[in-house]
Design a protein around this nucleic acid. Structure first.
Length: 431
DNA sequence: TAGGCCATCTGGTCCT
DNA sequence: AGGACCAGATGGCCTA
């Protein structure tokens, strides 16, 4: 009868007190602390050892009483035997009280969850389930952390975009997380192809678990909206004009090199820049500023070496999904503008041919001339797949294009053919 | 009707 | 010893 009493009920306390009394009574019974007359062995409660122990205790007690006669004598006896019905009643009572506590505990948990649910912004009409609420809260906190980080970073940089991620966009993602800035160096930080957060990366998971498809759809729609939001036009225009500089001397070369670094490290995603240009652009074109730019060989070589030497993986990642490089032709074919630049080109080319990176450079060239899609970590695998798929045809194209490509270069600046080691690499590894 | 979500009961474990 | 916490079991309700 007492089981279903609500704890909030005004009569609950009284009943609960009664339960406590009953339980304490049972505890006393079990603890054999009820003061009664001396028990007799006829009660049959103890075996021989128990009685011996009890007599020993009583002897101690009597001795203590004799030492301090002023103390009131306390006589302890055993509890009376409980009938099976009483034991069952006590057990049931104890279980019922545990159930009440558990019920209250779960109510408290649900109340806290409801508070959390109402605290979170939720554009969906349906009430979030418990697991959804918890995931939402985790992602929401992560998105807020990302926003805070972005605000701090752009506090002193008004030229950087400050569009913040919308926490709701990550509400029902299964494993959205925010990578801290210190996990990567400044030089290595490249813009994400999906969400641009300067110096940080918000990873966008591909899976949504335990979420209705309608909610997934809404979230993905929101993410798409954010992912392709172009940066501020003025900022990007400034950046692009900065990149428009033609390197004609050492100062400008250095200037452009810095620009390339900036472009590679800046906050604009590739897709965003594409929207500004209005047409597909290559990563090199992006690095050099705009689509139809005539590059000096020095600048192109600088860009090539920089990209090949230092940031191949990042660069390919940066250009993931974009049509491969075609400006490499321009980079190689533009004649040096001065004897100094020609010498520089020669030195760079020799370095490139001799270095291990030359293989990567040629790989990129082949990928470009054969229109193979570049992806960061799968470039070689894609080459293999493509070559294996069209072995002879593609290989002949590679050779033809490469020969045509290299034969068009100045003999003084480039070898008459691709490096032998690179060709053998392709032949040996891919075919 | 199957499956998801939820509340509740229950027994076990850990902590004070 | 008793309370808090946890996880499994169970049944009810709702929805596609």
């Amino acid at each position: 009868m007492l089981l279903k009493l609500c704890p909030d009920s005004p009569i609950f306390d009284d009943k609960f007190l009664s339960l406590d009394s009953l339980d304490s009574y049972s505890t006393d019974m079990e603890a054999m602390s009820v003061t009664t007359d001396e028990p007799t062995s006829s009660e049959g409660l103890f075996n021989a050892s128990d009685q011996q122990f009890l007599q020993h205790k009583r002897g101690k007690q009597l001795q203590t009483d004799c030492d301090s006669p002023k103390k009131k004598r306390i006589r302890k006896t055993r509890a009376k035997v409980k009938s099976p019905e009483v034991i069952q009643k006590l057990k049931t009572n104890r279980r019922q009280r545990a159930n009440d506590r558990e019920r209250n505990r779960m109510h408290g948990l649900n109340e806290a969850l409801e508070v959390l649910r109402t605290t979170l912004p939720n554009s969906t009409e349906a009430k979030m389930t418990k697991i959804e609420t918890l995931r939402y809260a985790c992602n929401y906190i992560s998105a807020l952390a990302a926003s805070l980080k972005l605000l701090e970073k752009t506090k002193d940089r008004p030229d950087l975009p400050t569009e913040l991620p919308n926490p709701e966009d990550y509400a029902f993602m299964n494993n959205f997380h925010f990578e801290q800035e210190n996990e990567q160096t400044e030089q290595d930080s490249l813009p994400s192809s999906v969400v641009s957060i300067t110096g940080n990366r918000c990873s966008i998971p591909s899976d949504y678990i335990d979420v209705p498809q309608t909610r997934q759809h809404n979230c993905q729609q929101n993410i798409s909206r954010i992912a392709y939001t172009p940066p501020l036009q003025d900022q990007l225009a400034t950046e692009m004009n900065f990149m428009d500089t033609i390197a004609t001397n050492a100062e400008n070369l250095n200037f452009l090199e810095q620009s390339i670094h900036r472009q590679l490290n800046n906050q604009y995603s590739f897709k965003q820049e594409q929207e500004i240009c209005g047409s597909p652009i290559s990563p090199f074109q992006s690095a050099f500023g705009s689509q139809n730019r005539h590059l000096t060989s020095e600048a192109a070589m600088e860009a090539l070496l920089n990209s090949v030497d230092n940031r191949n993986d990042q660069f390919y990642n940066f250009s993931s999904g974009i049509q491969p490089v075609t400006n490499l032709h321009v980079a190689y074919m533009t004649p040096p503008t001065s004897p100094e630049n020609q010498q520089l080109c020669n030195e760079r080319l020799q370095q490139q041919q001799q270095s291990q990176h030359s293989v990567k450079a040629v790989t990129a060239t082949v990928a470009a001339t054969t229109s193979l899609p570049l992806t960061n970590n799968f470039l070689q695998q894609q080459l293999i797949d493509q070559l294996m798929h069209n072995k002879i045809h593609v290989f002949s194209n590679i050779m033809s294009t490469s020969n045509q490509f290299t034969s068009s270069l100045s003999p003084s600046t480039l070898p008459s053919s691709l490096p032998e080691s690179s060709l053998s690499l392709f032949q040996g590894q891919f075919l």
